[in-house]
Amino acid sequence: MRRPTVRQVVGGLLVACVIGFLALPILVTVVFSFNASPRLSFPIEGLTLDWYDRGLRDPMFRDALRNSVVAAVVTALVAALIGVPASFALRGLAPRIRPLVAGGLLLPAIVPALLLGIALTVFLEEVGLGLSLETAIIGHVLIALPFVVLSMVARLDSFDFSIVEAARSLGAGPARGFADVVLPLIRPSIVGAMLLSMALSLDEFVVTFFTRGGDDTLPVLIWGLLRRGIDPTINALATLILAGTVTLALIANRLTKVRL
């Protein structure tokens, strides 16, 4: 075993600090969700599942969970349905307009959610659409779309389209060439992009808050509890959402590579 160099020691310390800084709030949330005392300070006085029990029993939680799941699934379907073809299109568009279209589609990802939220609010008022879960889902799709396009474009960039030509020259029509050759190969990326969309939807708060009407999603429910004060039930619900979004994102990460 070689002795570590100065470079490795300094680098290792830095990496440990950054990872620790990123992990700290997550660990705190999970640890206090099991804390027997309702006070959110150390030392931990014992372990309990009461907060989970209380949170899960709450009928408001059930409604919010149902709304969140509906929003996540619909968001994933719509974002994939319009985002995947758009990613294919970027290859066929004229080189002059391609960066314009790509940039436009990615723009909602770097616009603050507050701006999206208030723009959608005035828009929905103007066209006379009442606020509801459906209008909140519009915002979720808008936020998920750039990530679907990013991950699909990354996949298609490394896709060997000569195999499609091979299939065509062997007599397969365009539809068959797509369904039998392209689709099976890119399916993991599509599933990955959809899981990523679900994770983004489950976690979305700001746009949802402005456009949801009376329909609470899990983050909106948590926001309501946060404003009321300290309550470990929040930690329990948060830990559950955390488990959901992290699982989705990790599977998505296995299936696709998001590159910026």
């Binding site: 990123l22 997550i26 949330t29 994770a199 976690d203 926001w223 948060a238 992290v246 994102a249 990790l250």
Partner: peptide, 16 residues
């Protein structure tokens, strides 16, 4: 690990 942090909840982390 960075990806885990990226998807670990916006509201919740602020609250933490």
């Amino acid at each position: 690990l960075v990806m885990v942090a990226l998807f670990s909840g916006y509201l919740v982390r602020i609250y933490a």
